[in-house]
Write a protein that binds this DNA or RNA. Sequence first.
RNA 1: GUAGGUAUAGCUCAGUUGGUUAGAGCAUCAGAUUGUGGUUCUGAGGGUCGUCGGUUCGAGCCCGAUUACUUACCCCA
Length: 460
Amino acid sequence: MASIKASIPKGTRDFGPVEMIRRNHIYDTIKSVFKKFGYQEIQTPTMENLDTLTGKYGDEGDKLIFKILNSGDYMLKADGLKQKGEELSSKNLLPLISEKALRYDLTVPFARYVVMHQNEIAFPFKRFQIQPVWRADRPQKGRYREFYQCDADVVGSNSLLNEAEFICIYDEALSKLGLTDFTIKINNRKILTGIAELIGKPSQIVDLTVAIDKLDKIGLEGVEKELLSKGFTADDLQTLKPVILLAGTNEEKLAQLDTILKTSENSLKGISEIREVFDYLASFKLNKAKIELDLTLARGLNYYTGCIFEVKTNEVTMGSIGGGGRYDDLTGMFGLQNLTGAGISFGADRIYDVLEELNLFPHTTQESTKVLICVFGKEEEKYALPLLASLRAQHIHTELYPFGAKIKKQMQYANDKNIPYVIVIGSDEMQSGKLTFKNMQSGTQDKLSIDEIIEKLMIS
RNA sequence: GUAGGUAUAGCUCAGUUGGUUAGAGCAUCAGAUUGUGGUUCUGAGGGUCGUCGGUUCGAGCCCGAUUACUUACCCCA
């Protein structure tokens, strides 16, 4: 059989033992905070029905959904399409050849889950979920085609206490991971909606948000240029300008908005929601997080309706490492009306890259195995088996190097694997009952009885 | 979808205006050391220079195409 080059699809990665220790460190930290705030874990399937996912992420998002090809001979269906006289476009063909897709995020599958299990769920339902998601994007720095999200969402509670707690969760988890300078940006879609109404273009809310979201990247001029090209007028820009150029403390910004947007009912609602979140937050003590009201924060996903969040680290150059917000009608698409939800997501892979760049992973010389038993022959191997069992019975991570390799090779294995202790058993040891016990770090070794060895390993 | 960059040993990379048999470090294996790793020393294996074509007496190097990877844009975690 001809051999093929070993490779994996671009944007995907293998994770070795060291990486897994680090990744689990991130998951475990975030998970413990989620639990502390009363969130319970669920998982959903890797694939969803394609129609569950389409239409939830905007046009751009839909393009990035990985579709799964149906089994069977789909070419026949293409022929059927042709015979019916319909155009053989990928748009027409797609529903015929694909009805499943890989999940694109965790929020939409969660909404689907809530609808399907609504009779078993006690509301408000607080769930967290840590699973990979897939996007058919072009990979680049900090962007993968397979990556993990760590989501916490609550449905069935419109209290803004949830929003305030999300900020606490971000703060606690990221501080615990060792980040010392990061900003949680907050905004409210209702303010943006209000502005769109104010200038009489409520249907162009998406164009508006996408453009002003880029302010810090392309500057005011760039934003204006983009908006003009989308059909906004110079007058519109005049209305918009004081809002997106807002400066000062969060309190000052809110006070200014009160006057600027006093004619927009929607905007005022959004402003008061943000005030309420800040009021809740006043009772909590944050660790390292900076909270910033940012009117240019928009977020691409178009199901958000209330407060929205985004988290950025100020220590390295990296896209957002988390985001979320409130969505009032995500379950409505699946037939369950009037159920509000809100949630946040941690981008675990980006957080990994940040921690690595800042050298923030705990460098505990994580030893998987504590002691390796080396034997000289078949007899010794047999002699070692009861010892192996009793070490493990004491919960000491122990390996026996199977008979057949030179001692040198066995020692090298212990060294490569960072195993701190080695027991050597040869004919001398079997005769005397005193085994050679070597400390690999110091290089010293003694002849000790089995009980003495166990005792040493237990206390070290 | 748009625009750049890169492709040489398992890995990271040198390779002079285009000139004999393409190099280094790391890794691997063997020996110095037949009961001892990590340090040290000695040696060995490992390459259709991404692929196809062109220019040339001669191409790793120049030109064209192609593929893969990568960075940025769009968008996003």
